[in-house]
Design a protein around this nucleic acid. Structure first.
Lengths: 193, 193
DNA sequence: GGCCGACATGTCAACAGGCACATGTCGTCA
DNA sequence: TGACGACATGTGCCTGTTGACATGTCGGCC
């Protein structure tokens, strides 16, 4: 149940409405933690009931902005520092790879090409975002620096997945021996990070 | 709903019981698609009702082994080739990073150290698994080659996450300018893959 | 013969997440 | 003034996931 904490974390930056938070999830957190507006509005009400957030202001069109309370911030910090990290990774593209042997080489080639392009494109987008931040386009606060860190994860993860798809092109599981290239090319090399 | 397809895919390799499948999920697919036994048993019954799998044999202790039917295999292939890939990535560790600015440098340093070690260890485990497979310890079938591909994803993903945690140590979001190292070290370099 | 650990299958309740549907407001442009 | 698109909040239902609980069998060892 990380959603509660993510919402409070965002509210710790500045007061926001359900609508604001929905959009931030869409274009900032959506990649690592999708959340639709029904879920967000419901969670906000619960958080308010629990006294972790409170109404900040009411605006036009019934807009309700919330701010995080003192105990809310405490709870986020408790989560960040004392709650065991959930390392669960649920990744359909990798799950599928276990069953690649059920696809024809043609199907698989086409599939991998799309996957590599998709992930490399995404990595590129995060790279651009990071570059813009590094140029100072989003200012320089602890908050934006944290987002910069998350963007770095986006770059590395999607790059890794794209590279993996490309690597798999040369390692397809066909019935014949010679289909799979032999390992004069390294399975995986680490950059001198 | 990838679980159905994953179960059928595993059954396409060889007949298996709910117990067998539970263990395979635990130690093979658990990292990319967790599934407990209640879910698996329920799904197996549904699959049987839908005629996608059928009873193969009954063993001691009420053991029921299933095999996939012709239409089951077709369905898996349809999923692999015609169903849009779900690229959803739900990764709590990255979500947390957006809120790193709420942690003290000491807390964050300790956190990142643990994370880096955790992921690098995992990457190493996958690297060993891959090496064993490459030495021929698991034989050489299209199925084991597919698993080899999934292991490669495990290596790259966890390595990327471990590297990311290490990189973040030098890019912590503190209030002061000088806390963050400046970028004579590259944000991200790609290996010549 | 009795105990234990691995094998094996299930139910139930609670919760999280996703999708479709419903409702209403404000600003702007034709 | 009427239409439209962005703003804004919500309900209801269905599915998927998780954890706790429950039950029973088989093989091997003491």
């Amino acid at each position: 149940m990380s959603l509660r904490h993510a919402l409070m974390g965002l509210l710790a930056e500045q007061p926001a409405s359900g609508w604001d938070l929905t959009r931030r999830f869409d274009d900032l957190l959506g990649t690592v933690w999708p959340a639709g507006h029904p879920q967000i509005y419901r969670e906000l009400r619960k958080l308010q009931d629990d006294g972790l957030i409170e109404m900040d202001s009411e605006g036009p069109r019934g807009r309700k902005a919330y701010r995080v309370t003192k105990s809310g911030v405490e709870e986020v910090r408790r989560w960040l520092t004392s709650v065991e990290v959930d390392h669960t990774l649920r990744l359909e593209p990798v799950l599928r790879s276990v069953f690649f042997w059920l696809m024809t080489p043609e199907e698989l080639t086409a599939h991998l090409e799309k996957e590599a392009a998709f992930y490399h494109d995404l990595a590129e987008k995060y790279r651009e975002l990071a570059a813009a931040k590094d140029r100072g386009e989003y200012g320089d606060s602890p908050q934006t620096r944290s987002i910069r860190i998350a963007a770095e994860a986006g770059i590395r993860l999607h790059q890794a997945l794209g590279d993996w798809a490309a690597w798999t092109q040369n390692h397809q599981p066909g019935p014949s021996e010679d289909t799979a290239a032999h390992d004069h090319d390294q399975p995986h090399t680490r950059p001198g990070d």
